[in-house]
């Protein structure tokens, strides 16, 4: 149990996927203007990553590896992810149409979100057991949502702040990221 807790906390805080591994930047820069859509996006990403991870993990160990088709991992994983995102899109359109509209183009773009493919690949290359995979594939997108949420609260203020012309919009957002990254390094050694 101790191992899983460490894995969970380190994936969210110490090795945060956005602030230490730079993945998931595109949606952070694009979506994070409203806190409600940030949380909605985060929830969608958690669901997609968890679902895709379980599916691709099973696919790899019960089909690809036994058939010595490991080199097909990239193609099959990304197709599974694309299918999952389509599925989430359809569900959201039906049950949460407001959120579906708010997220707009960024929902299908979850397919090209580096975090999703990264987690599905790392589950294999790090040799995780089933439970480790479950813990990791939930912890990482939670960490992503955390940063996305914090960022959205700052971004709302940032849009109204006096920023030099050239820095307006994305460059100043990146500077904020730099500061957040610096703050998060304090978590090293937590577990």
């Amino acid at each position: 149990m101790e191992g899983f807790f460490t894995l969970f906390i380190s994936a969210i805080l110490i090795n945060n996927i956005v602030l230490t591994k730079f993945l998931g930047m595109c949606p952070i820069m694009g979506v994070s203007r409203k806190t409600s859509s940030a949380l909605g996006m985060g929830a969608a990403v958690v669901f997609v990553i968890f679902g895709a991870s379980v599916f691709t993990y099973g696919l790899y160990y019960s089909v690809l590896k036994p058939l010595s088709l490991e080199y097909m991992d990239l193609i099959t994983f990304i197709l599974v992810i694309a299918a999952f995102v389509q599925f989430v899109e359809m569900v959201m359109k039906k049950f949460t149409p407001a959120l579906y509209k708010a997220l707009g183009i960024f929902l299908p773009l979850i397919t090209t979100n580096c975090v999703v493919l990264y987690v599905t690949l790392v589950n294999i290359t790090n040799g995780y057991s089933f439970m480790e995979m479950v813990v990791y594939s939930i912890a990482v997108p939670v960490g992503f949502t955390l940063v996305l949420y914090i960022f959205s609260t700052i971004r709302e203020r940032l849009d109204n702040a006096p920023v030099p012309e050239a820095f307006k919009g994305n460059p100043i957002a990146l500077i904020v990221m730099a500061i957040m990254a610096a703050i998060f390094t304090a978590f090293a050694g937590l577990v």
Binding site: K168, P171, L174, I175, A178, A181
Partner: peptide, 18 residues
């Protein structure tokens, strides 16, 4: 470190925007 990465990128991006 990641901090430097974000900073450098921000500065170059601001430069191009300018």
């Amino acid at each position: 470190s990641p901090i430097g990465a974000f900073l450098t990128f921000a500065l170059l991006a601001a430069g191009v925007a300018a």
